[in-house]
């Protein structure tokens, strides 16, 4: 049984691509055959974050247009078994995406036995974003703890409930999850940032957890290795928790409160 998951937000720069790379990597680490698809046609990034930009030959648009076979475009991750990615085109634009073509590619991926198909949505709510979400079974809505990001996520949740194949079929709606990224408990405490409670009250969907604001994310992107693999960092641990929760395991929430410096840390810190 394959599951199509869209990582979306509406607003740009909140951490969709980072989240796509890390969740895909985490799920694959747990033994599920997983592929991450970059839907940001024209601004491809996911290949960089996943560190396979040098191996891109064909892309999603080539496959949709019949210029390449799906197998030729898929890139196998060198570090993590079971992990694959399908890059976006850098030269085309999002008009090259059409529902039939995208549907065909997703169907083929299912036949190839992928357990999880992670669709990295572009920012905005236009064609690219709508194509990324159209066939999704589940959605992870990535939000930053600030008002404009929350409002955009709200807009996207409305679209997920209206402009997707599940919504049009009138069957079971898309399962939505909230992921709060770039969270800083210290700023929340100072009243400079919305708290988890504020955001949950506004959006009212199941909560996957927080990813703390961290320099490690940028360092990891530049290195081209998803931060989840750098297990010493709190961001890695946060993403590991999120992956487990997404797969249905209960885990206590962390990184929401300011960390009390422990006795040992105060001595050796």
């Amino acid at each position: 049984m394959s599951k199509i998951v869209v990582i979306t937000s509406g607003k740009g720069g909140v951490g969709k691509t980072t989240t796509s790379a890390n969740i895909a990597t985490g799920i694959a680490l747990l033994g599920h055959k997983t592929i991450a698809i970059d839907f940001d046609v024209g601004l491809r990034n996911l290949d960089l974050v996943m560190g396979c930009e040098r191996r891109v030959v064909y892309d999603l648009i080539n496959v949709i247009k019949g210029e390449a076979k799906l197998q030729q475009a898929i890139i196998r991750d060198k570090r993590v078994e079971n992990l694959y990615m399908l890059p976006a085109s850098q030269t085309r634009d999002k008009d090259a995406l059409d529902p039939e073509g995208v549907g065909r590619v997703l169907e083929q991926l299912k036949e190839m036995g992928f357990d999880y198909i992670i669709c990295d949505s572009p920012a905005g709510i236009e064609r690219g974003a709508q194509m990324a979400m159209y066939f999704a079974d589940e959605a992870i809505v990535v939000t930053n703890p600030e008002v404009s990001s929350v409002r955009d996520s709200d807009r996207v949740l409305g679209l997920l409930n209206a402009k997707t194949s599940r919504a049009e079929a009138g069957g079971e709606p898309i399962k939505t999850h909230l992921l709060l990224t770039r969270y800083s408990p210290a700023e929340v405490e100072r009243g400079e940032m919305l708290s988890v409670g504020d955001v949950l009250e506004l959006l009212g969907i199941p909560f996957l957890g927080v990813i703390p604001e961290s320099k490690a994310v940028i360092q990891a992107s530049n290195k081209g290795a998803p931060v989840i693999l750098d297990e010493m960092t709190d961001v890695s641990q946060a993403y590991i928790d999120v992956v487990y929760r997404f797969l249905g395991q209960e885990r206590p929430h962390r990184f929401i409160e300011i960390e009390k410096r422990g006795f040992l840390k105060r001595i050796f810190g």
């Binding site: 709510i125 409002r151 949740l157 409305g158 679209l159 009212g204």
Partner: peptide, 24 residues
């Protein structure tokens, strides 16, 4: 919930919303 960007119009009717009506 009625999310940002959504418009609900009860033509010649009353409207009852049993959930939040969000900004926008």
């Amino acid at each position: 919930p009625v999310r940002g960007g959504q418009v609900i119009y009860a033509q010649r009717a009353d409207l009852v919303v049993l959930a939040p009506v969000n900004a926008g």
